[in-house]
Write a protein that binds this DNA or RNA. Sequence first.
DNA 1: TTGTAAGCGTTATCAG
DNA 2: CTGATAACGCTTACAA
Lengths: 364, 364
Amino acid sequence: MPDLCLKSAYAVGMQTPEPTLADVAARAGVSVATASRALTGARPVSDTLHRKVRDASRELGYRRNAVASALRLQRTETVGLVLPRYTTGFLSALIESVSDGLERNDLSLVLRYSEPDALHDVGNVESLMARRVDGIIICPSSLEASQESIEAAGPVPIVQVGRFVITDRSDSVGLDEDRATQMLMAHLVERSARRVLVVGLDPDAPADARRIRALRGAAEGAADVDVAPFTAAVLDGGIRAAERLVAAGPGALPDAIVCANDDVASGVLAVLRMRGIAVPGRVQVASLLDLSPGREDLTVTTLRHPWPEMGREAVRLLLDAQQSRREPGAERIARRVSLAPQLVPGHSTRDRTVPTAPDSKETP
Amino acid sequence: MPDLCLKSAYAVGMQTPEPTLADVAARAGVSVATASRALTGARPVSDTLHRKVRDASRELGYRRNAVASALRLQRTETVGLVLPRYTTGFLSALIESVSDGLERNDLSLVLRYSEPDALHDVGNVESLMARRVDGIIICPSSLEASQESIEAAGPVPIVQVGRFVITDRSDSVGLDEDRATQMLMAHLVERSARRVLVVGLDPDAPADARRIRALRGAAEGAADVDVAPFTAAVLDGGIRAAERLVAAGPGALPDAIVCANDDVASGVLAVLRMRGIAVPGRVQVASLLDLSPGREDLTVTTLRHPWPEMGREAVRLLLDAQQSRREPGAERIARRVSLAPQLVPGHSTRDRTVPTAPDSKETP
DNA sequence: TTGTAAGCGTTATCAG
DNA sequence: CTGATAACGCTTACAA
């Protein structure tokens, strides 16, 4: 007499056993095969039996055991998401959009955080493979992490999302910040900005330096781009920078101020408003980073980062890769999707048609 | 000859098959049973065989198949987390802390978002049950959702987390906001606040109305509590509210301003500083909601919501429930844990010992 | 259309 | 201590 430990546990009444397909079949008076076919719809089943099975299933409160199913099908209908443990609001937007995309395809999401180092990333990927996920979406914390994770994933489809992606070995969804930054500058130049001041970016930080380069590149002689002495990229930084600027006298005022993010812009705007400097009449203000995704009543011209779209796109790539993995043919070539942040015009920059009005005044 | 579809797929070379325990056993020259025992450590195995198995496993790159294991053990080592699709930063703190707690116990997290209605909550619970999760942590979006979810979970342990929890039917981790709100008011009253203005709360929103009631209740005649016209509970709302207040003249200034959250408080503080109104000398400022968990350099007195602790506590309760579910004995009684937000004193309220100094001035 | 039975990969029981 | 083997619950090839 073999292993009865599980059954005997039930017998003790410790818990009600979940009804199995066999139970349903027995109650409907059919074979398990028929029951399976009736419920999954994999094969045609006569109407009468179909009904019987459905009824029996309902009566017993049957729920398909996804674990057994996964073992048989060699497919868990589960996708892993690996994220660095940064506490930025963006990642939660990414989680939501990935989750949403997966749900639409009846896939489950198993989530895993990495400390921001490559080793942990790889460990998480490994552990997801042990769970036999059908695919992995990963937001690598660095380029090395990216590289190693792809290798660790081996044959399971993996999609990289975010800023640090190795592009040739796997699908990836990147952020085209340069293009967006350039769009913002073009927006300002179109609106007659000739002297532009950048506030809240740190020229010594590589990422910020790159943004500054992108701004200068887009200005291309049409405008001068100065960088204000670095202040923290928060409200207070904006306030301090603006106060310093205003204190330097009216001649020091640029046509436009580009802020590191919405918070900085709020600070700048508050100071300008209080000093009676018209926005956007005298000075235009824009932000490189929308901090409150979801808010529609923004008044400052800003760049909205497409985290929701990135999640959806990642899911799409993953499903596509799975699809083509089932077909025998040639190796699938890696896809690289690049999304640019979206320029959201607000009231802090001018209407394109309104001409420059450098001397207009406006009280708050 | 039965079903060879899976093997034949391998044979075609469509993908490398993952090595199985049988492969490892064969290579090590032992039975699968021994291989299993050697790798899991469930039973003692002689040193030599142990080594052989470990070597074979490494050489083949063997990874335990968690799906098969789960089917056999009737345990997936997986916990479901169901969240409402609000876009608040807190939920992501909750996700992180739950994830962390689970990881420490070698459990996987499968995440599911509900639209904020009961039906969707129940659907998510059902779907997690189909995946045979070992437990569920749920942040219900409403009291009805809470009720129905518990019922849907049936025998699997479920822990509720958050504001809306039915307490008698399942374990729960709640938030004692009233108590925290009262503590904040007491803090201010102790510091001689007699006229308190509330900024950024919407009296028409039930949750905000409740906070206002809690503030008034705690003031209890010791202070007057006014509510400023509603502005959005964001940075800019704080700026606007403060500007309006300052414009109304010095007589309109209260002793203390309670802001809906840190962002609002930042805005208020910025304006006050710019107008040369001393904080905390002339006006004290406090916030009902810490928005940046993790930051330690806060300068504003605020209530820190214990989301990390809530996640950890939820996991603890879940594990505890699983534990006692294995033991045959009596039914486990529901545990209710209530955590209060923590009052974090900052520089925006006075030292308790410093007396009121209503006329002091201070330049920014 | 339906039934029979094999097998997905692992672990626990039982017999050596 | 080790090996053979029967499940776990489901899906499908094959036979009827």
